[in-house]
Every structure is written in C-alpha cells, then in structure tokens.
Simulated scan of single mutants.
Amino acid sequence: MTNAVLAVARLLVVALFLWSGFGKLMNPGMVAGAISAKGLPAAEILAYLTIAAELGLGLLIALGFYARAAAVALAAFTALTIVFFHNFWSMTGDAVRANQIQAMKNVSIIGALLMIAAVGPGRLAINQR
C-alpha cells in the first residue's frame, strides 16, 4: 500500500510541473518575455532552462528515476520562482494577495518535494535512490 501511495503522490506532485512545462514548450517566447520583464539576464536561455527543469525533473520524479536528486533540484527551482516571480513582499494592491497565495502554494509544493527527497520514490520506481 505504501509504495502505491508513494507512486501516486509522485505523479500528483509533478502533474503541475509537467502541465506547465508542456505549455511553456509550446510558447517559449512568452516565457522569455516574462523572465525579461522581471529584469533577469539571458531570458531566452533561462526560458529553455525553465522548460527543461519543469519537464525533465518532473519526468524523473514521475518515473522514480533519481527521484531524490530531482526532487531537491525541483524544490530549489520552485523556491526561486517565489523569489523572482511571486515576491509579494515588494508588491502593492491586489498583486500582494494573489502572489502571496501563489508563494504559499509553492511552499507547500516544496514541502512535498522534500518529502520525496527524504523517503525516496518507493518500490514502484525505475530506481530506488
């Protein structure tokens, strides 16, 4: 039972990243524009790295292939999105509340990713590291 729950949990945690990454893959220019609007350098390169992180790390976790390392990397990526894109502490008006909710959602996702890193992918995985 525990291994089945771990497998389902892995899929549920990364569903958002896979969906988002695929959407970004269909329009990398939009992603580069959002990155550029935040004042970050090399927006096009960062756009493709974002797509690779969401799709690549998401797939590794879903498959249970080096899931621990992928979960830590995806947790770090998610933390960076809070700092650069959901930085509600430097916003005003309605943006504060909307981005605070997004930031807290990301904190919860980071928690789930760190649990995967701590316990591993379970037995229903390509490897069990």
Results as ranks from 00 to 15, higher is better:
I61M: 02
G21D: 09
G64M: 03
T2E: 14
R97H: 11
A125M: 04
G120S: 07
V31S: 05
F84R: 05
T78S: 09
Y66A: 13
Q100R: 11
A34R: 13
Q102V: 01
S90Q: 14
L11T: 08
I126G: 07
S20M: 09
F22Q: 04
G111E: 04
F17K: 08
M115F: 10
F88Q: 05
G33D: 15
A125C: 07
G120N: 07
A47L: 06
G21S: 06
V107I: 14
N99T: 03
I101P: 01
A52Y: 10
D94A: 13
A32K: 06
G39S: 02
D94P: 07
V119T: 12
A52M: 14
G111L: 02
A9K: 03
A7W: 13
L57P: 06
M115R: 01
Q128I: 05
I35K: 01
V72F: 12
A70M: 01
M91P: 04
M91K: 14
T2R: 15
V107G: 04
A34Q: 14
R97L: 14
E54Y: 00
A112T: 08
A7Q: 13
N3Y: 06
V72M: 02
A117Q: 00
S36H: 08
G56M: 11
N3S: 13
A69H: 08
I110T: 02
A95C: 00
K24N: 10
A98I: 11
I109S: 04
A62F: 02
I82W: 00
I110P: 00
F88V: 06
V5E: 09
V83L: 12
A47S: 15
A47G: 10
G21Q: 10
P121R: 04
G29A: 00
A15Y: 10
A4G: 01
L18E: 03
I116W: 01
S36K: 09
A79V: 08
A42G: 01
V31I: 13
M30S: 14
M91E: 15
L6E: 12
L113H: 08
L46D: 00
A52W: 11
A71I: 08
